[in-house]
Write a protein that binds this DNA or RNA. Structure first.
Lengths: 194, 194
DNA sequence: TGTACATCAGTGAACGCGCGTTCACTGATGTAC
DNA sequence: TGTACATCAGTGAACGCGCGTTCACTGATGTAC
């Protein structure tokens, strides 16, 4: 049962999309090839007609997830981004949340090729966040970049730490709220003195 | 070949200690029971004389790792702690680094019992960091706690994000340096306005 | 436009492998006398 | 203090299982005429 070219493309895209979600929910080792294919409505045997290996799909799914996050960020301002990022909804739904927050720990133990995808994703996200700042001044640009790197790490840390706490634990919510207030405060305040 | 009571205790402690390191280096799914036992100089069959299951050891190894971090923090002040935490040495040696930074992502997908160990570890670390502040004032105490939660999340995020980048990538170092400067700046400055 | 045939995405059984866990056995330890 | 024996940490083979990957096969698609 061969299938139209359009169908092939669509199937492949669906595999990547489902993988992107499932990996975020359960980690790279937490989902098998068979389950991934089943989630896309296919059987596992056809997997290698689309991808060289599971690691291959991991890289592609990460790229997709990171691109999606970037796209979601493009339209809103930094304050809205932070409010949404540091919400309980985001923390409790890793599957359609930030790929960095969900998979950074896993990425650290993956081959360089996957780490490269993450680094590119971070740079891309930074470019979008910085773009709200339209200055021409070089030192102001550097300042804006540093601020955004800092904000990103701060936000990722809050989500990651909050997710490591038991469901409904007060500490999990406290981490989120404290960090949200702090990050928003910093964004409002002038550059920190050196 | 039975073994003295002291030897039994020592063997068990060695298993937990090695597990604590290996899990931090390669994640909970990245190390098997056989390898864990071999690292402790034993064969895999005896594992279940010491632990009910691998998950059991995971919880104990996490507790050990978190307790160790707390102990290491007890003697030094917050600035020294931050400088050490956000160093390339720490980033590049997860095996004897912070358990939170190394395993938070994994913990998020583990049973509640392990998440509880993490939450307890976070509280313990907070207690130590807050203790440098010796005020009696209730609102100042709350302020100190919030600051330390914030600092911890910030620092964890920086390490986790930096580790997801390729080895020797400029971005990995940039993240570390930017966050270190920022965190130290905040610790020096007065409480952020609300 | 209609026919004949090569292509190749998808199927499902099978592969070897490493995992967590169980088990019968060993033999020095530690206890009872 | 010396002897006899029960205990149980440690061994290494074996278990079932699910994993990533391979393979012979299918049959509609898309191409060549």
């Amino acid at each position: 049962m061969k299938v139209t070219k359009a169908q092939v493309q669509e199937n492949r895209a669906r595999i990547v999309a489902m993988a992107s979600v499932l990996f975020r929910e359960r980690g790279y080792d937490g989902v098998g090839v068979a389950e991934l294919m089943a989630a896309a409505g296919l059987t596992h045997g056809g997997f290698y007609k689309h991808f060289k290996s599971k690691a291959d799909l991991m890289a592609e799914a990460a790229a997709e997830g990171l691109a999606q996050s970037a796209a979601n960020t493009a339209d809103i301002d930094v304050v809205a981004f932070v409010n949404q990022y540091l919400s309980r909804q985001h923390r409790d739904a890793p599957g359609d949340g930030c790929t960095m927050a969900a998979l950074c720990g896993d990425a650290a133990r993956q081959p360089e090729s996957i780490k490269a995808v993450f680094a590119a994703g971070i740079e891309r996200q930074l470019a979008i966040l910085e773009s709200s700042n339209e200055t021409e001044d070089e030192s102001a640009k550097r300042e804006a970049r540093a601020r955004m790197i800092d904000t990103m790490a701060h936000a990722v840390g809050a989500i990651v730490l909050s997710r490591a706490c038991p469901d409904d634990s007060p500490l999990a919510d406290e981490i989120l709220e404290v960090c949200r207030a702090q990050i928003l405060g910093q964004l409002r305040s002038p550059p920190a003195p050196i």
